Deep mutational scan, measured.
Amino acid sequence: SDIKVHVGDITVELHNVSEEFARLVEEALRLGLNEEQAKEWAHKALH
């Protein structure tokens, strides 16, 4: 599904992702990663 993740003043739109993936992206953003890094990190975490 499509999910918007908000962290501080950052909003990341995720398309066709699981809630778990979105949660991992949100966690990575909170750790200070940028959007691209957060998506990559979440992807690796799920595989």
Score class of each variant (00 low, 15 high):
Lys4Gln: 11
His6Met: 12
Ala38Glu: 00
Asn34Ser: 12
Ala45Arg: 14
Glu20Thr: 11
Asp2Thr: 14
Arg30Val: 10
Ala28Gln: 03
Trp41Ile: 06
Asp9Met: 13
Val5Gln: 03
Arg23Cys: 06
His15Ile: 11
Glu26Asn: 06
Leu24Pro: 00
Glu19Leu: 15
Leu46His: 09
Leu24Ser: 03
Thr11Gly: 05
Glu27Pro: 00
His15Tyr: 06
Glu13Met: 10
Asn16Phe: 07
Ile3Gln: 07
Glu26Val: 11
Leu14Pro: 03
Phe21Leu: 04
Val5Pro: 06
Glu20Arg: 11
Val17Met: 06
Val12Thr: 05
Val25Lys: 01
Val5Tyr: 03
Gly32Phe: 02
Glu20Ile: 10
Val25Thr: 03
Leu29Ile: 09
Leu33Gln: 07
Ala42Thr: 01
Ala28Ile: 01
Ala45Met: 13
Arg23Phe: 11
Glu40Arg: 05
Ala22Ile: 07
Leu46Glu: 10
Val25Glu: 01
Gln37Phe: 06
Leu14Asp: 03
His15Met: 10
Asp2His: 11
Asp9Thr: 12
Glu20Leu: 11
Glu26Asp: 04
Leu46Tyr: 13
Ile10Asn: 06
Lys44Gly: 12
Phe21Lys: 00
Glu19Lys: 12
Glu36Lys: 13
Val17Tyr: 06
Ser1Phe: 13
Glu40Ser: 09
Leu24Phe: 12
His43Asn: 12
Ser1Gly: 13
Val12Pro: 04
Leu29Met: 08
Val25Ser: 00
Asn16Tyr: 07
Asp2Ser: 14
Trp41Lys: 04
Lys44Cys: 07
Val12Trp: 02
Trp41Thr: 05
His6Gln: 15
Lys39Glu: 06
Ala38Tyr: 00
Leu33Glu: 01
Asn16Ser: 09
Leu31Asn: 14
Ala28Arg: 01
Glu19Phe: 14
Val5Met: 02
His6Cys: 08
Ser18Ala: 04
Leu33Phe: 13
Ala42Ile: 03
Ser18Met: 06
Glu13Gly: 05
Glu35Thr: 12
Leu31Pro: 00
Asp2Ile: 15
Trp41Ala: 08
Leu33Tyr: 14
Val12Ser: 05
Lys4Asp: 08
Thr11Glu: 11
Glu19Ala: 12
Ile10Cys: 03
Ala42Glu: 00
His6Trp: 06
Glu40Gly: 05
Val17Arg: 03
His6Arg: 02
His43Leu: 10
Val17Thr: 09
Ile10Thr: 07
Asn16Arg: 02
Val17Ser: 07
Ser18Pro: 06
Lys4Pro: 10
His15Gly: 10
Val25His: 02
Ala45Asp: 04
His43Val: 12
Glu35Ile: 14
Glu26Met: 13
Ser1Ala: 10
Asp9Arg: 01
Ser18Arg: 08
Asp2Pro: 14
Ile3Met: 07
Ala45Trp: 12
Val17Ala: 10
Leu24Lys: 10
Ile10Tyr: 08
Leu24Trp: 08
Ala28Val: 01
Asn34Arg: 07
Val12Lys: 01
Glu13Phe: 05
Thr11Met: 12
Leu24Met: 12
Leu29Ser: 02
Ala45Phe: 14
His43Gln: 13
Ala42Lys: 00
Gly32His: 03
Glu40Cys: 08
Leu14Lys: 03
His43Tyr: 14
Lys4Tyr: 07
Val25Met: 03
Gly8Tyr: 03
Glu36Ile: 13
Ala42Met: 01
His43Asp: 13
Ala42His: 00
Leu29Tyr: 03
Val5Asp: 09
Val12Cys: 06
Glu20Cys: 07
Leu31Ser: 11
Glu36Trp: 03
Gln37Val: 06
Arg30Asn: 11
Val7Pro: 05
Leu14His: 04
Leu24Arg: 08
Leu46Asp: 07
Gly32Trp: 01
Val25Cys: 01
His6Glu: 15
His15Asn: 10
Asn34Tyr: 05
Glu20Asn: 09
Leu14Val: 04
Leu14Trp: 03
Gly32Ser: 02
Lys4Trp: 12
Gly32Thr: 01
Asp9Gln: 11
Val7Cys: 05
Arg23Gly: 11
Leu14Glu: 04
Ile10Ser: 07
Glu26Phe: 11
Ile3Arg: 02
Glu40Ile: 03
Val5Ala: 02
His47Leu: 15
Glu26Ser: 09
His15Glu: 07
Glu26Ala: 13
Val7Asn: 05
Glu40Phe: 08
Glu19Pro: 15
Leu33Trp: 08
Glu13Cys: 03
His47Gln: 13
Glu13Tyr: 04
Leu29Gly: 01
Trp41Val: 07
Ser1Val: 11
Thr11Gln: 08
Glu35Lys: 10
Ser1Trp: 08
Leu29Ala: 02
Glu35Trp: 08
Ala22His: 04
His6Ile: 15
Val7Phe: 15
Gly32Asp: 03
Ile3Glu: 07
Ala42Cys: 01
Ile10His: 08
Gly32Leu: 01
His15Lys: 07
Ala38Asn: 00
Asn34Thr: 12
Arg23Tyr: 10
Asp9Ser: 13
Ser18Trp: 01
Glu35Pro: 04
Ile3Asp: 09
Gly32Gln: 01
Asn16His: 09
Ala28Met: 06
Ser18Cys: 02
Ile3His: 15
Arg23Ile: 11
Arg23Ala: 15
